[in-house]
């Protein structure tokens, strides 16, 4: 058995590989290796050889506990997928897809031909854009007090009440503000999702693995949108409008992209129906 295996980055149509000769591509995941297309009649996978010393199941598991090892390679994987996505329709694969034999890749391309072609059609001429909803909690809370009639009323009553009553009313105000701030934020998040989904071909709300704090506040929601290149201006106009509209409530939008369509490689819900 050879001690080499094939790392697979992404999949394109065979015809598209003419625009992307191996020597024009960014560096492979491991230094010294070259990128190579493994093609069937109509689909081609971009691959490079890796050593089983590093990429066997056992070594890979060992490397998984070393974030710097992974980070470096994940970056190269992304650089390659992005390079290809800028030029042709591409199905980006997740990090760490490894085949022992070239024939295994050819087999996969023919077994998954229909699914892969459907994804390529869906992402053709489109890019993925990330939109994160960021919230400055204290700004949101103060904007709530100024717009909510119930809170305004209670605040006035607290000002006129005796110290004891005032304390109790203040407690109530604090609890209400938290509730109202949460509701207001959720309404904004829904509005962002619906407005931008209408300006794109597909939308996904992504899970957040932990609370992420940015310089503008805490990340409260994370979306990916699949946007036609030709309709990007409408999408970005809508996004900028939303950002301006909610700025005073302490809610900001953070944009990222264009990405290869990593989040749109699954089948759409309606494509599952028979």
């Amino acid at each position: 058995m050879s001690d080499l295996a094939y790392y697979v980055y992404c999949i394109v149509e065979s015809a598209a590989t003419a625009e992307l000769p191996g020597d024009s591509l960014p560096p492979a995941i491991e230094h010294g290796a070259t990128l190579e297309w493994v093609a069937t009649q109509d689909l081609a996978a971009l691959t490079s050889q890796v050593s089983l010393v590093s990429y066997s199941e056992e070594s890979l598991n060992h490397h998984l506990s070393d974030p710097s090892w992974i980070a470096e390679r994940a970056m190269r994987h992304e650089t390659i997928a992005e390079f290809v996505a800028k030029r042709v329709a591409v199905v980006p694969l997740r990090f760490g897809t490894i085949f022992l034999e070239r024939a295994g890749i050819e087999q996969m391309l023919s077994d998954k031909r229909e699914e892969l072609r459907a994804i390529l059609e869906r992402v053709r001429g489109r890019e993925e854009w990330a939109v994160n909803v960021i919230c400055d909690q204290s700004m949101l809370m103060s904007s709530i007090t100024s717009v909510s009639p119930v809170l305004r009323d209670l605040t006035e009553r607290a000002a006129q009440a005796s110290p004891g009553q005032s304390y109790l009313i203040q407690k109530k105000i604090d609890a209400l503000r938290v509730d109202e701030a949460r509701d207001a934020l959720n309404r904004i998040i829904d509005e962002v999702e619906q407005t931008l989904a209408a300006k794109s071909d597909d939308a996904k709300r992504l899970r957040m693995l932990k609370v992420e704090t940015t310089e503008y506040g805490e990340m409260k929601a994370k979306f990916a949108f699949l946007v036609k290149k030709s309709e990007f201006d409408q999408f970005s106009d809508a996004a900028e409008r939303l950002a301006r509209e909610h700025q005073s409530a302490g809610v900001g939008l953070e944009f990222g992209g264009p990405w290869p369509a990593y989040n749109f490689t699954g089948l759409k819900k309606d494509e599952f129906s028979v």
């Binding site: 295996a5 697979v8 999949i11 990429y55 066997s56 199941e57 890979l60 998984l64 992974i70 980070a71 994940a74 970056m75 994987h77 992304e78 997928a81 199905v91 980006p92 694969l93 997740r94 990090f95 760490g96 897809t97 490894i98 085949f99 022992l100 034999e101 295994g104 996969m108 998954k112 994804i119 990330a130 992420e212 990222g256 990405w259 290869p260 990593y262 989040n263 490689t265 699954g266």
Partner: peptide, 22 residues
């Protein structure tokens, strides 16, 4: 963003059962 990149490459993308996968 480094983190966004890692999020995409590690958490998203088509999962194909290669002979070795994470």
């Amino acid at each position: 963003s480094l983190l966004e990149t890692l999020d995409h490459v590690l958490n998203r993308g088509l999962v194909i059962a290669g002979e070795i996968t994470i």
